[in-house]
């Protein structure tokens, strides 16, 4: 019954890679926490999001096997992020420009 050849055609990732990714994610968590205590002004946000995006890439590529999958899978993932950025972009371009024509903002900041 048990045929030895893998029927799924899936790439089996070596354990060593999973361990390295786990350690990298843990180190990046400690790093992002440490950087938060240093006052970099607005660049705190930049560093924070860059580290989060790096961690996400590691999880998606290795834990979620996107590095070894067909091209269709990254297309779906990137497509979702593109639509997300469209939502952020259009919504913020509305709220950030409301006071520009001198009529006063309909949503004043405290």
């Amino acid at each position: 019954m048990a045929s030895p050849e893998p029927t799924s055609g899936h790439h089996i990732v070596p354990v060593k890679i999973y361990v390295v990714i786990f350690l990298a994610l843990a180190c990046l968590t400690v790093l992002t926490t440490a950087v938060a205590f240093v006052d970099l002004g607005p660049f705190n946000n930049v560093v924070m999001l860059a580290i989060s995006l790096l961690k996400t890439s590691l999880v998606v590529l290795f834990f979620m096997h996107v590095k070894y999958s067909t091209r269709l899978v990254p297309l779906i993932a990137v497509g979702a992020v593109v639509w997300l950025l469209i939502m952020f972009g259009i919504t913020m371009s509305d709220y950030m420009t409301r006071g520009w024509l001198g009529a006063g903002s309909s949503w004043p900041r405290p």
Binding site: T32, V38, N45, M48, L49, I51, K55, V59, M64
Partner: peptide, 23 residues
């Protein structure tokens, strides 16, 4: 895949809530 996705959401929630007011 679902479990890793939920992990990724937390990867963003952690800095956005815990790390923005440290100084």
């Amino acid at each position: 895949l679902y479990w890793h996705f939920v992990d990724i959401i937390w990867i963003f929630l952690f800095p956005l809530f815990y790390l923005i007011g440290r100084h």
